[in-house]
Write a protein that binds this DNA or RNA. Sequence first.
DNA 1: TATGACATAGAAAGCGCTTGCTGTGACGCT
DNA 2: AGCGTCACAGCAAGCGCTTTCTATGTCATA
Lengths: 349, 349
Amino acid sequence: MTVTLADVAARAQVSPATVSRVLNGNYPVAATTRERVLRAVDELDYVLNGPASALAAATSDLVGILVNDIADPFFGIMASAIQSEIGGPGGRAGGERLAVVCNTGGSPERELTYLTLLQRQRAAAVVLTGGAVEDAPHAAAVAAKLRKLADAGTRVVLCGRPPAPDTGAIALTFDNRGGGRELTEHLIGLGHRRLGYIAGPEERTTTRHRLEGHRAALEAHGIAEDPGWTVYGRYDRQSGYEATLELLRRDPSLTAVVAANDSVALGACAALRDSGLRIPDDVSVAGFDDLPFSIDAVPSLTTVRLPLAEAGARAGRIAMGREDAPPGGIATIRGELMVRGSSGGPRVS
Amino acid sequence: MTVTLADVAARAQVSPATVSRVLNGNYPVAATTRERVLRAVDELDYVLNGPASALAAATSDLVGILVNDIADPFFGIMASAIQSEIGGPGGRAGGERLAVVCNTGGSPERELTYLTLLQRQRAAAVVLTGGAVEDAPHAAAVAAKLRKLADAGTRVVLCGRPPAPDTGAIALTFDNRGGGRELTEHLIGLGHRRLGYIAGPEERTTTRHRLEGHRAALEAHGIAEDPGWTVYGRYDRQSGYEATLELLRRDPSLTAVVAANDSVALGACAALRDSGLRIPDDVSVAGFDDLPFSIDAVPSLTTVRLPLAEAGARAGRIAMGREDAPPGGIATIRGELMVRGSSGGPRVS
DNA sequence: TATGACATAGAAAGCGCTTGCTGTGACGCT
DNA sequence: AGCGTCACAGCAAGCGCTTTCTATGTCATA
């Protein structure tokens, strides 16, 4: 039914071994023979059997990319950048690799299952993006899995995720703490003293780090934080909307709202507007990530730009072994404060 | 080095065949034996060799998803929905499948290469999302590839893409023409007579259909279109920004701008604002897709909502054989006009 | 002319799994 | 008691490719 290597070999009047070598180009084959083989491949419309090849060669051309939420541009942008580097069609030489983007939905179980699936496929590399879940048993399970993957020869890269010690994984970490701190210091500098914070899911490292940065800034400026000023939620718009209403209910005197990310900030803006408050005249708003739409908010969003595409591209190159790992296997990537229209001085109460 | 089926078999004191059957659950195995095998699997931390399994069984558990731009939520949302349905971790029963999301960047060559790669992996199913490129030779090449995939037993589903006749592919098509028409009729109904149109890339079916709908509406209302009222671009914000400036230069008397999608519309809004024009008082703006951020634009965007998640989910189910194909293998999915703040009556000139 | 050295091609042994076919006891039936 | 049935389990033959090792012809060198 389907065309096999042997068929091509027969047609080209050579042995299967020769066909394989022509296809892989890793062994000298006379030019005329190569021609003949390639013609046969073409005429028969032969397509290599991936599984068979992977089995025999004990390697595959699959690269896994784990993301928390593929529908979120934060991950989409990184995934896109990673994929553009791992080759595949359009990429540079070095064999075509297939990117497997896996959507974990932020669930640790799924993350593990996907890692197993990738291990099963003998993936050439795996890139894990975004914050990790802090639950200890799961973290340990993931770490064990990563170690196993690394042992099996799969290159493991973390992109936008804290390092996983003793796993052999290369980490490209975002400086969420520093960014969070800088952002809040900017607001404090404008004169704000009563700042609400809309955090992401509580057990996520990203959430914690950004919040820590925020609190560090408060502390550094002698601002005592009211526990009611922090609300946890999800990393989406709706969560930001609801959390903002809650924040307003708890303390209507807040003059600024710092959001866990831009989507949340957008929700916050909507909630503020719906509550009859002006931005930034009545309340300033700040986001995080600087996703493409953030500049189009009205007023445009003050936020911390994370070089997602650059980080993804670098992670991709490292995963492909085309770039050296950073010293110590860990690199911290800083964000850049983008001051825009959504932040201003506090209203005079 | 790595644990194989045989190792597990030895440990459980059964034959490899039995282990395989326990793992696949497709053959009666005595409960006690199964127990023993599972324990051995656990103790040895055995992970099935995917390629070997795929080779022997002549099927794989990979499902391909082709998207034009993974960083664009339009595709991210569909991909997410598809993936949630094709099983994988967290999905329902029926074996765990790995979703391979492939970023074509809208390039036909890449699309073809990815299809070949998926064919090579003997993918269980392939879902192609988004508009197709209209270049005849490429369309034919893609069609041929799809036919071959279908012949090889791979289920092929098109999601948000026009049907591909004679390929055996199931098509879930968006009614871009109808949506485009409805949108423009809404604007005409508000009194607009001079409407600019910012189209996507010229050779894309989505672009053509939406534009056709727009023109059909104009024609139905006896509005003669000025050729200068249409500008082609890309499906992104920047393109919308630039195109709007161009439109304004060509005809400052336009009272409405219809964009190819929401991102473009956002860029249009920014350009209008930067030109000192108010929305919708001076110029109305309309988008397409109703992505999550569209409601947060100020004013919120009038657009056509496409049920991306629903369509993706359905495509996923069909790909998995868990839902019947629509009659004739083709289903048209309609959009819903969302009238919001960015559209209003034209200014009185 | 003899002799390595080299370039190229083939034979064949797997890679680790699935599955059709072949036992083999245990049962229930006549 | 005799025999067909059935539920399990194992044997062994591949699945289609890669790769080691070996064979062969060709050159340049001694």
